[in-house]
């Protein structure tokens, strides 16, 4: 693990951070920002479901930034820290709903050993979430994992960081100049 940036900021006067380092490759930065905003605003999956999967990935992948971030819309919809505290390796025995446990199990399948993903779990999730919801979950987990690894390997994890609520990408608060 490195908490020393391995690539400097591409933006003069700004410190190395995910968006300022990614700016060395503007097409990656711009296409990711557009996709991530569209993903979070798509109605196929609830904000709560997405955030549960994102936090599960953040904890398993051990991304020091991702696991301290909370997105605002899920927070506003009532997803609190007590619930997120249940997203541990023991979530199967927790008070989360069976549907939420299946969402976490699919998240684990993608970020763990996907060649052993249980088709029966996928079929049940199809009924839980619909085809579009399951597709959104798979896409989200892939993005969460991929971008966490980019951040980690660039050395952009903070030494310390409190739990921080950020505007959900694509939301009105995210687009407002004061929020950026």
């Amino acid at each position: 693990m490195s908490t020393v940036p391995r690539v400097p900021s591409a933006v003069p006067g700004q410190p190395p951070a995910f968006h300022t380092v990614l700016a060395h490759a503007p097409a990656i930065q711009q296409n990711f920002a557009a996709l991530y905003a569209d993903f979070w605003m798509d109605p196929a999956l609830s904000q709560r479901d997405r955030e549960l999967a994102r936090i599960r990935n953040a904890r398993v992948t051990a991304c020091g930034f991702c696991r301290q971030v909370r997105f605002s819309l899920a927070r506003e919809e009532g997803l609190d820290e007590a619930t997120l505290d249940l997203v541990t390796d023991a979530y199967a025995e927790s008070s989360l709903s069976d549907r939420e446990k299946r969402i976490l199990a699919w998240t684990d399948a993608v970020i763990g050993d996907p060649a052993r993903a249980d088709p029966a779990l996928g079929e049940t999730l199809r009924r839980d979430l619909g085809e579009a919801g399951l597709a959104a979950l798979t896409l989200g987990v892939g993005l969460f994992l991929g971008l966490a690894k980019v951040l980690i390997t660039l050395g952009l994890e903070p030494e310390q960081m409190p739990v921080t609520v950020l505007p959900t990408p694509g939301s009105a608060a995210y687009r407002a100049p004061a929020a950026r």
Binding site: V110, P114, A115, R116, T138, G142, L145, G146, K149, V150
Partner: peptide, 22 residues
């Protein structure tokens, strides 16, 4: 930056494809 993004997405894409294939 491009190499690290490409590597992470090769990995993510492989995982997503294997899961979807299942």
């Amino acid at each position: 930056v491009t190499l690290l993004a490409a590597l992470a997405m090769f990995d993510a894409l492989c995982r997503m494809t294997l899961a979807a294939s299942r």
